[in-house]
């Protein structure tokens, strides 16, 4: 069976995910309100400008929206007993997971366009638009892959368990990614820690896009995000292949 055909089935799965998991009132409201709330929380009453905050805020918006729903999909399908039928269709595990990643990706991109528009309206000028767009696509894909990786273990049918565990990863990641303090102002150990988070590189790239200043260079940021995306995706596929059977008993 051709990979292209499998890819088309991924798209069908992504479409299903969008209808079932994303096109829901509360999810949309969360997706839209949360980044705007972040913008307000960080600008109101502080003498930092939107321009100063833009890289970190965009980073958080993309990161939180593209990892918001992904981890819950497999536990949810296990619980609602739709998973066995789904995984016995002639679809490879990679294609199935890629479908979930694509859904998270689409949601992340669409929702992040809102804070991006608000920022632009508030006077943020994106100098290197092409680099920024590429970075945004890559980062969203990378985080969407991470969201699928987060549901690997335990192979539970309780979405809340997975969401709680994934929050334990997601929130600390924001703190070590140069969102609140730019990487170049961190101490050496801080920089070392921040280098293991893919979000660091997107924030760095976003800073470059609006000011021309960055700690790493734009090509490095893009390359590292690509590596993270591939690693997350491959590891997620391998581990899901291993643990998926345990979801049935």
């Amino acid at each position: 069976m051709s990979h292209l055909e499998q890819l088309r089935r991924s798209l069908a799965i992504a479409e299903k995910d969008v209808w079932i998991y994303y096109a829901k009132g509360p999810v949309m409201v969360f997706g839209i309100i949360f980044p705007l709330f972040l913008i307000m929380a960080f600008t109101i009453g502080r003498n930092m400008t939107v321009v100063d905050l833009f890289p970190g805020l965009m980073g958080m918006a993309i990161f939180f929206t593209s990892t918001a729903v992904g981890p819950a999909i497999l536990p949810w399908e296990t619980r609602s007993r739709t998973l066995e039928r789904l995984v016995t269709a002639p679809v490879e595990v990679w294609a199935l997971l890629l479908g979930d990643v694509i859904a998270s990706f689409v949601f992340g991109i669409l929702i992040s366009l809102i804070p991006l528009s608000v920022a632009v309206l508030m006077g943020v000028e994106v100098l290197h638009a092409a680099v920024f767009v590429l970075g945004m696509l890559l980062a969203t894909f990378c985080f969407a892959s991470l969201s699928i990786l987060l549901s690997v273990y335990p192979p539970t049918d309780v979405p809340a368990t997975v969401m709680m565990l994934s929050s334990l990863v997601r929130f600390p990641m924001v703190f070590i990614s140069g969102v609140f303090v730019p990487v170049d102002q961190l101490p050496g150990w801080g920089r070392a820690i921040s280098s293991v988070s893919p979000l660091t590189y997107f924030v760095d790239l976003a800073r470059y896009s609006i000011s021309g200043i960055s700690y790493y260079s734009a090509p490095v940021d893009l390359a590292v995000m690509t590596v993270f995306a591939v690693v997350f995706l491959v590891v997620a596929i391998k581990l899901h292949e291993r643990f998926l059977p345990q979801r049935f008993s």
């Binding site: 089935r9 069908a12 479409e15």
Partner: peptide, 25 residues
């Protein structure tokens, strides 16, 4: 048809079938 399985309750009967058909190309 798996044991104690379910269709997607959020989707219509029609959409469930279209989705399945998609998975079989």
């Amino acid at each position: 048809v798996p044991e104690m399985a379910n269709a997607y309750v959020e989707l219509t009967a029609w959409r469930n079938l279209m989705f399945m058909g998609d998975l079989y190309g």
